[in-house]
């Protein structure tokens, strides 16, 4: 299986923050969710992948090209939606259609008009009068209306109501019906990612904690409920995080370690919180 995105030991250092040694692969036909706390480096990583920022070290490849910032042909095949709609409020959807057809060689005016209709966005209404959900749908419509094979979405569902978020997830699932397509999306709303993603990558303080298939990840761990002393007695290598006091405590452990304890199946959010706290 070919990879849409290949990152190897990617490092980017700022004065007060560093993204260290990030390696991950996004296979074609898959959706990968990028999770992490605020300031974990998700947007920085997406900026590097989209060519907005240069890496200091490592290899970054998107759709087989490693010259993302300058490869115009490559960018015809990458659709991006940032956390904020970048079209000025003075424009309307019809203007966006005309503007983008002057930027992308592969722009499909009819496809964009269909998305505008499907998303119930008025072609004539000024973007400044759109709700946040409408601006995000407009950005996604723009990302889908050229020959995109890879979609990169930065917090595209944040601030949206559950119905709109669900619509957007449906659009993404439609998009990857073509096995050459793939999606990389960051979000704070881990439940959305749990619904739609095949892979989950967890960034914490600039480091990649894991990048695994979602189903394997959910099957790998268990949350045990016991006393602090019982957790202390476990091999430290199988405990990935703990919370609570001496008498009522919980720990994220490998599933096979959970036998003999009262245990729950963790959600992705549980795994993220346990592992994040453990590393603080």
């Amino acid at each position: 299986m070919n990879n849409s995105i290949h990152l190897k030991n990617v490092t980017k250092r700022y004065k007060d923050f560093a993204l260290e040694n990030i390696s991950l692969d996004l296979p074609q036909g898959c959706i990968m969710g990028l999770i992490g706390e605020n300031g974990a480096g998700k947007s920085t990583l997406l900026r590097i992948i989209t060519g907005l920022a240069d890496k200091d070290e490592g290899t970054v490849e998107a759709l087989g090209s490693n010259d993302i910032a300058r490869d115009r042909n490559l960018k015809e095949h990458i659709g991006v939606a940032l956390d904020k709609c970048a079209f000025s409020g003075a424009l309307n959807a019809d203007d966006v259609n005309k503007i983008m057809s002057g930027i992308y060689k592969t722009w499909n005016k009819d496809a964009f008009s269909e998305y505008v209709e499907r998303f119930k966005l008025s072609g004539k209404k000024k973007i400044k009068d759109y709700s946040r959900g409408m601006t995000m749908k407009l950005s996604i419509a723009a990302a889908l209306s050229h020959d995109s094979k890879l979609l990169i979405l930065d917090e595209a569902t944040s601030g949206l109501d559950p119905i709109v978020r669900d619509e957007i997830l449906d659009i993404l699932l439609d998009f990857i019906q073509d096995e050459t397509h793939s999606v990389l999306m960051s979000s704070h709303i881990v439940s959305d990612l749990e619904k739609a993603c095949d892979y989950i990558a967890f960034l914490h303080q600039g480091r990649l904690v894991f990048c695994e298939e979602k189903d394997e990840l959910l099957d790998k761990y268990a949350i045990i409920k016991c006393t602090g002393a019982e957790i202390d007695a476990l091999d430290k290598n199988v405990v990935y995080g703990r919370r609570g006091g001496r008498y009522g405590a919980e720990a994220l452990v490998l599933k096979e370690t959970a036998s003999g304890f009262v245990s729950d199946k963790p959600s992705i959010e549980d795994i993220m919180v346990f592992m994040g706290k453990e590393r603080d």
Binding site: K75, I78, V80, A86, F87, S88
Partner: peptide, 14 residues
């Protein structure tokens, strides 16, 4: 104001 330039650089624009 709209953050256009960052967005434009993700397109076939240098």
């Amino acid at each position: 104001r709209s953050g256009w330039n960052a967005y434009a650089l993700t397109m076939p624009v240098t």
